[in-house]
Write a protein that binds this DNA or RNA. Sequence first.
DNA 1: GTGCAACGCTACGATAAAAATAGCGCTCCG
DNA 2: CGGAGCGCTATTTTTATCGTAGCGTTGCAC
Lengths: 112, 112
Amino acid sequence: MAIPRPGKPVRGSQSGAPIMAAFDLLGRRWAMGIIWNLSSGPATFRGLQAACETISPSILNRRLKDLREARLVERTLDGYQLTESGSALFRHLHPLGDWAIGWARLVADEEE
Amino acid sequence: MAIPRPGKPVRGSQSGAPIMAAFDLLGRRWAMGIIWNLSSGPATFRGLQAACETISPSILNRRLKDLREARLVERTLDGYQLTESGSALFRHLHPLGDWAIGWARLVADEEE
DNA sequence: GTGCAACGCTACGATAAAAATAGCGCTCCG
DNA sequence: CGGAGCGCTATTTTTATCGTAGCGTTGCAC
């Protein structure tokens, strides 16, 4: 599956709105989890696989290809790591960590 | 598909880390797009369908069920709208709009 | 009071994405 | 020369999503 190109029709926007292209890419399974796991530094293929706990190598590989093509991840001698763009993205994703904790509490309370 | 429960095993975290539960939910197709479209106010089912441009009613319905169960979206007389939690989430998602514009430029430059 | 249009969905078969598992070719070390 | 660990690929099965048709209901205009 080719990565969504801003400016060309993407899921959610025929006119190719960047945010919809981003959602298309980040909405692919494991994409955000991989970025989250890479935020603490470079990781090898198997290291990432272990960090993700249950990802299969085939999908990890496919997602890494997507993220590399989208210039969010790059490969170096240390393994895979976030690009500058990927790090910038992570800085925006990071606050979700705290939000998720509050959300988890709310969901837990309501399911009683 | 049941929604991921923080605290129980979820994709990416056997221990149920809230952020991974959130990524599991938000990583489902259209989930973030729906939240984005709802951020400007309540919308009806068909209104949302039109805003998303190419979503099918079956998947829109399923995703709305997910998001409602996760307490991010609720149904009112005006149609579907973000809950308080959903709005808080959107405030964190909103900056991605600007980031995506910069990212789009980068991707466009590099594919020449 | 009866069309007719629009709404909120549901049903269902087709297609595409993801998961699970096995294992290949390679390098590094003892 | 093993043997272990690596980065990945291949293949099959399962699951998610798509696309389309259309049902039951409501709100008008007539």
